[in-house]
């Protein structure tokens, strides 16, 4: 079991007004799953992703990550877990400007602690560079290493972001509307990469508001007003290919 949440609640308090965003959610995510969380804006799907991604804390409930209760961890412990176990892909890419593609991908490894280092380094001196180049080549950007992030296309930017998410060999990748800022052709390429990664054994959580995009996953959890209204496998799964663009 990779993720196990039980009666997870989240409320925001602002100037005395309490807003309940998540009303006691419970579900599990297994290793190797491709889960899509879908819901209209304001449904709480982003908040759920932030909590699952250890960027935010639940107000109450239990959250087990790889068998470890994470609701009691402090900021530094959460930062270390994010650094070692989680990869993020954001809608707006969130790459550093005026910084090379390679340096962007290296960034998570510059914060690596001893554990991540021993997992990836193999006692090699230049391990950060090697590892970053390796993942960039795997997403087809081996020829863009020294380009600055403002010199490449939107689709390439999102591939850099995926490479950055993969560089620490994470247990799970969270992709928050990864195709939202892309043209349809680039969007298909990104979905293809995500599906290939899942085929290779990576666990992926895709957050989107489009049913069409979510049908690339294997399982859909639909959230409305902080409640899970649907949790089902995808029966007619879509497969990203060049043909799709023509539709």
């Amino acid at each position: 079991m990779l993720i196990e949440i039980n009666n997870l609640k989240k409320k925001f308090e602002s100037e005395g007004v309490v807003t309940n965003v998540l009303h006691g959610l419970s579900f599990n995510i297994e290793h190797g799953e491709f889960l899509s969380i879908i819901g209209p804006s304001g449904s709480g799907k982003s908040t759920l992703m932030h909590i699952l991604g250890l960027l935010d804390r639940a107000t109450s409930g239990h959250y087990g990550f790889e068998g470890r209760e994470v609701t009691t961890l402090d900021d530094n412990e959460l930062a270390t877990l994010r650094n070692e176990k989680i990869g993020f892909v954001f809608q707006a890419f969130n790459l550093l400007t005026r910084t090379s593609v390679l340096d962007n991908v290296k960034l998570p490894l510059t914060y690596a602690g001893p554990e991540l280092k021993s997992k990836l380094a193999n006692n090699k001196k230049d391990w950060i560079n090697r590892r970053a180049k390796e993942v960039l080549e795997s997403v087809g950007l081996g020829h863009r290493l020294d380009y600055y992030t403002n010199q490449i296309s939107g689709g390439e930017k999102q591939r850099v972001a995926i490479a950055r998410a993969l560089v620490n060999k994470p247990s799970i990748i969270f992709a928050d509307e990864p195709t939202g800022n892309l043209d349809s052709k680039s969007g298909v390429q990104i979905m293809k990469i995500l599906q290939d990664l899942n085929d290779a054994g990576n666990t992926i959580v895709l957050v989107t508001h489009e049913l069409y995009t979510s049908e690339h996953a294997k399982r859909i959890i639909k959230i409305v007003d902080g409640h899970i209204v649907e949790d089902r496998p995808v029966l007619n799964r879509r497969f990203a290919s060049e043909v799709e663009v023509l539709k």
Partner: peptide
């Protein structure tokens, strides 16, 4: 925010 998301601690 990005740096923190990918593992930077407060001290970093």
């Amino acid at each position: 925010g990005l740096r923190k998301a990918i593992g930077a601690k407060n001290s970093n």
